[in-house]
Amino acid sequence: MTTINYTCFLFKRFIKNKLNLGLILIILIILISMMITNVKSGNDDMQNHLNHFGYSQNYRRSYHNLIQYNNKIMIKSNSQDITNQLSNDNELLNYLYQNNIQYESSSHPTTSYGFMKEANNSYITGFTLLIIIFMIINLFSNNYIERMNISKLLPMNRFKKDFISIIFSFLLYGFLWIIYNVFSYILGLIISGSGSINYPITAFINDIHNGSYVNFGSLIPHMIIIKSMFMLFIACFVYLVIIICKNRIMALFSALFISFGLIISSLLFAPISRIAQWIPFSFFNGNDIVTLVLGHSIDNAKLNYQNGILILGISIVIILIILILKNISVNKIKRI
């Protein structure tokens, strides 16, 4: 009974803060503007080529024709870049042909599944991370006044309170993620229909240097698992930062600085890219981990799903142990 009510209180505290609603709204506005851009951008080169080969009459035949055309160009071409590009195109076309799927631009998708994939790119995921850090800190830093934790005064077991707070943050992150995915799905559905869940995406699962096309739908369970682990990790991490900093601005700065500092550093600096698999923040975008796209771009094959689960799991356990030890040590001091 008491726990439910503390959770309700947290929920009310979240809802009644206009900033939080504003933050959610910003994500939705960004998604709408992304969709508008995608719709406006029109056909890409591949679509134009396919149209030239009779896409509207029979899209499977147009794939076949374009593959043959590309093969002819490849024979004549001296450029390695062009050859690579065309063989990549052919691989995609072949996949679409075999699975009888309609082509969709990967850079400007408008169908539900295509747009959901785009909505989970690194920029939107990074932006969502920024927003959730603000939200969690805004929610729990209120417990600290003059560096005193006034939530201690509640007649409630500390472990229980920490547990509720972390789970609440985790659910909040999950809620945010579901909201923008569902919203992306609906936007796509309104504009171009649902699309195919089996649409191929580039992945570097078998070879970190050479991508191949894999079924998007088959990767979804792993994406959800690693994303959930990351959400739980962030919930634990931000809560720990708040407890250590005991001050809203300090906590905000530290959380943003550490998380984004490490994410950006692992993307930009080779020495840090090499050890990115040990940094839990590197796994912020589940899609890029499962497909090894991130590992490919920073040349680190160890940035994969298995290591993600391991490192995030260990990090969560370490943070929880720190929280437990902190509570035990505080209790001991008080008994002196």
Partner: peptide, 10 residues
């Protein structure tokens, strides 16, 4: 404060 920081960051 918190709104100002957020808007400036964005």
């Amino acid at each position: 404060r918190i709104t100002v920081i957020f808007i400036n960051i964005i």
